[in-house]
Design a binder for these strands. Structure first.
Length: 804
DNA sequence: CGTTGAACTTAGCACGTCCCGA
DNA sequence: TCGGGACGTGCTAAGTTCAACG
């Protein structure tokens, strides 16, 4: 937006002067050979240069050494804000990797692929254009191999389609052609609108009104949402909803009262959707109350109707479809401060939907009296159907499920890429450290941005429009999102993806601090881009020089994976299973924190915590009582154990104990009563006679006894030992059990508290397949290429959750 | 070279189901 | 055995990326 308005930024006095952009400008940006010279040999302490030739075992060993050396330092990434600066400066440097240099040069040059080198797939009769797309991402050598393979296989495919299994070969480059044949049943439309029963009406200013079903449907959208305050209370949401609602009313003849008089709907506040909400709510309860058999039948019915859509035939193989249901109409629930939240998301007509399907396949028929927008046979796409939604014009795709072969493969590629980044990371870091002092502003900004992305797992940060929520990522950071605290502390505070707040106080290397200071210098002020000479595409273009396919987002995958790996390796493999789970969760949480995966604190969190706290206190009280009982059994023990042992825990005071005792008594009473009632119900159901009320009164005496007992205890300051034949040993045993319960509960509480706003789901990905031993994990991590066999996933961590 | 279109990944929320402790 | 919280899953919004376009 305001990009490019500011050019040279004044140079920092205590730093080499920045040449303003009139100098060579962005020469190196467009130059394909950014990797000028290999890094000095003396710095190749941890060499990974020979990797490509080394046998796997050696590779692993080398990598392991590297990891372990770096692990301690990397771990700090998690404790961002601690002592990051040092680590960043002293990061071990790896060799510049001449092989990679060659590679990237070859790629960077982007030599035109002659027709001969075009993957054969492109020449297949099905494809309409000779397509250079993706060409440069396929090294020539590979391309040729692929070409040969495909030639053979194409023939093979013609001969015996059954054996055509190229998609299973993970070494095969994807090229452009994603499938040869594709069959599917299309999409499922949501049911048509069902008008509300006549007696269910929105009220305006207290008066029930009727309206055309088109308008009623919109009112219904809002009414159905009354329980989710989140949306309904947002002024933008209300405004947008009401605007669309009024418009529809205008179009359909407005609202009328019971006598047919027009009622002008002018004020949102006078609209009462409660009757509609109640209606839906009642419907829901009714459904829930349905007998199990009936529920089952309904489900079976639905399943049967949808069965044809569940799978497609992708090159003759059955593959699960992800989302074959067309999104139903409703109110757009944009997150955060989305300017369009609340607008009506319209029903999607078949006329808006494009179907992508194999040429030979039967095109699914559109609903009676309709036609599809278009039929495509685009085998370069993985989607089955597509439409554009009316709010933002966003494209919606029907694609395969996450556990399908295609998705699995691309997912796998993602990790391969992250693993490859591992080989280049040292070089990249070295490079940006140097460029942090580059005289060309654009380069310096780029280096700084890469630093931030690498160190703090920021997202790339594309520019966004005015009609979207105001969120940022690295490249789109604004003046006000970064606060500098000398000597080298940086405070990030901004809304990221999904309007999730990113707040972090970190230490950076001095040069980065200096740079940020420069980038923020006047005349820049709030609202201005910090990286005003940088775009995500420039940044990615630069990254691609280091490694084919390297982009900003790979760093997130890499960092998440790498962190997880290190944490898991640090785990003692000797622990018990629950301990391992806890450790694993802990590691997971750290990764989630690294990636800033957050969730809104659950509504009941505070109450839950309080409850937990009370329960812990209760246990401590129990402990105290047991100890008193020990005194009762053997008074001499006081000397043996020391008086301190028998003192009341400092968390507890007399008042709390009093309350707790009352609570216990009450609880007991309630339990007894409940049990009594239940037994009675049962008796009744069996046709037997119910117990008299007297029985209950008798039973309730136990509660009274307890109260009395407490009173006694309080008065005498002594607790009588319970149970038959109490011995010190038995009581010790009790005590131990209580201790254990306190411990687990404390852990629980801690876990809960630290998890309250961390979303684990996203990074909890990691399905550890078997044992959590460090060796295994490492193998999984580093050797996933060898181990990975979709769809029987080998249990890696990913940045995304993968079902199944 | 910046902008836009298109395709694909990433991610939080809502809700239903499962599971575990009292 | 029951109730409530953890967990899984569907849904769809919100990102990133790459290529075509003007």
């Amino acid at each position: 937006m305001s990009k490019g308005t500011k050019k040279a930024v004044p140079s920092d006095s205590d730093d080499a002067p920045l040449v303003s952009k009139k100098s060579t400008g962005r020469g190196s940006l467009t130059s394909p050979t950014v990797l000028k010279k290999p890094v000095r040999a003396s710095e190749t302490a941890i060499g990974e240069s020979g990797d490509s030739d080394a046998p796997l075992g050696v590779k692993l060993a080398k990598e392991k050494a590297t990891i372990q050396k770096r692990a301690a330092k990397e771990a700090q990434v998690i404790n961002r804000g601690e002592k990051d600066a040092k680590k960043a400066v002293k990061r071990p440097q790896a060799n510049g990797e001449s092989s990679s240099k060659k590679k990237s040069q070859a790629n960077g040059v982007k030599k035109e692929e002659s027709d001969d080198d075009m993957p054969l797939a492109c020449k297949a009769p099905a494809s309409k254009k000779a397509n250079p797309k993706h060409a440069e991402s396929t090294p020539k050598r590979k391309g040729k191999v692929a070409k040969k393979e495909e030639t053979e296989q194409d023939e093979e495919a013609e001969a015996e389609e059954e054996e055509y299994r190229w998609w299973e070969d993970p070494t095969k480059s994807d090229g452009t052609k994603k499938w040869a044949t594709l069959e599917h049943a299309g999409v499922v439309f949501p049911p048509p609108y069902q008008p509300l029963p006549r007696n269910v009406q929105m009220r305006y200013d207290g008066i029930p009104v009727k309206m055309a079903s088109e308008a009623e449907e919109i009112a219904g959208f809002f009414g159905a949402m009354l329980n989710s305050t989140h949306n309904v209370e947002s002024p933008t949401f209300q405004k947008n909803f009401f605007h669309d609602f009024q418009e529809m009313l205008k179009k359909t003849g407005g609202a009328k009262d019971k006598d047919g008089n027009k009622v002008a709907i002018k004020d949102f506040k006078k609209c009462d959707f409660q009757p509609i909400f109640n209606h839906f709510d009642a419907e829901r309860t009714e459904k829930k109350a349905l007998p199990a058999a009936e529920k089952k039948r309904l489900k079976a019915e639905k399943d049967e109707a949808e069965a044809p859509y569940l799978y497609c035939l992708w090159d003759g193989r059955k593959q699960k479809v992800g989302n074959f249901r067309v999104e139903p109409p409703g109110l757009f629930r944009g997150r955060g401060d989305h300017p369009k939240t609340g607008h009506v998301k319209k029903r999607v007509d078949p006329e808006q939907i494009t179907i992508n399907i194999g040429k030979e396949a039967t095109v699914p028929s559109p609903p009676e009296g309709h036609r599809w927008k278009e039929i495509k046979h685009d085998n370069e796409g993985t989607w089955l159907a597509m439409w554009q939604e009316n709010i933002n014009g966003a494209y919606k795709y029907v694609m395969l499920a996450a556990n399908s072969d295609v998705k699995g493969q691309s997912d796998f590629k993602k990790f391969e890429k992250a693993r490859e980044l591992k080989k280049h990371i040292a070089h990249i870091r070295k490079d940006y450290e140097r460029e942090l002092k580059d005289e060309v502003m654009a380069n310096r900004q780029r280096a700084t941005a890469v630093y931030l992305i690498d160190q703090f797992a920021l997202r790339a940060g594309n520019e966004k429009g005015d009609d979207e929520a105001d969120t940022v990522g690295c490249c789109s950071l604004k003046y006000e999102h970064v606060t500098l605290k000398p000597p080298n502390t940086v405070i990030f505070d901004f809304l990221g993806k999904d309007s999730i707040r990113f707040y972090d106080e970190v230490e950076v290397v001095p040069q980065v601090f200096k740079n940020l200071k420069i980038f923020k210098k006047s005349p820049k002020g709030p609202g201005d881009d910090i990286f005003d000479r940088l775009t995500t595409s420039a940044l990615n273009k630069h990254l691609a020089n280091f490694m084919t396919g390297l982009t900003a987002k790979v760093f997130r995958t890499y960092n998440a994976s790498f962190t997880m790996s290190n944490l898991l390796q640090d785990m003692k493999s000797s622990g018990s299973i629950p301990e391992k789970i806890k450790d694993y969760n802990e590691a997971n949480r750290k990764v989630a924190i690294l990636c800033n995966h957050k969730r809104t604190v659950a509504a009941g969190h505070d109450t839950q915590m309080e409850k937990l706290g009370d329960r812990i206190k209760g246990l401590k009280y129990q402990k105290w009582r047991v100890k008193q009982m020990m005194l009762d059994v053997d008074p001499k023990i006081k000397k043996k154990k020391g008086a301190e042992f028998f003192e009341l825990d400092e968390d507890l005071d007399q008042q709390w104990i009093q309350e707790h005792q009352n609570f216990l008594v009450e609880e007991l009473g309630q339990k007894i009563t409940k049990k009594f009632e239940k037994e009675n119900e049962k008796l009744k159901a069996d046709g037997a006679k119910e117990m008299k009320h007297k029985e209950l009164t008798e039973r309730l005496e136990a509660a009274d006894d307890l109260a009395k007992k407490f009173k006694q205890e309080n008065k005498k300051n002594k607790v009588e030992a319970e149970g038959k034949g109490p011995t010190i040993e038995k009581l010790e045993g009790n005590l131990e059990k209580l201790d254990q319960r306190v411990a687990t509960m404390l852990v629980q509480a801690e876990d809960k508290e630290s998890n309250k706003e961390v979303a684990l789901g996203t990074s909890k990905i990691v399905r550890i397949s078997s044992a959590l031993s460090a060796g295994n994990v490492e193998k999984l991590l580093m050797g996933a290429a060898e181990l990975h066999r979709p769809p029987s996933d080998s249990g890696l961590f990913e940045e995304v959750r993968r079902p199944y």
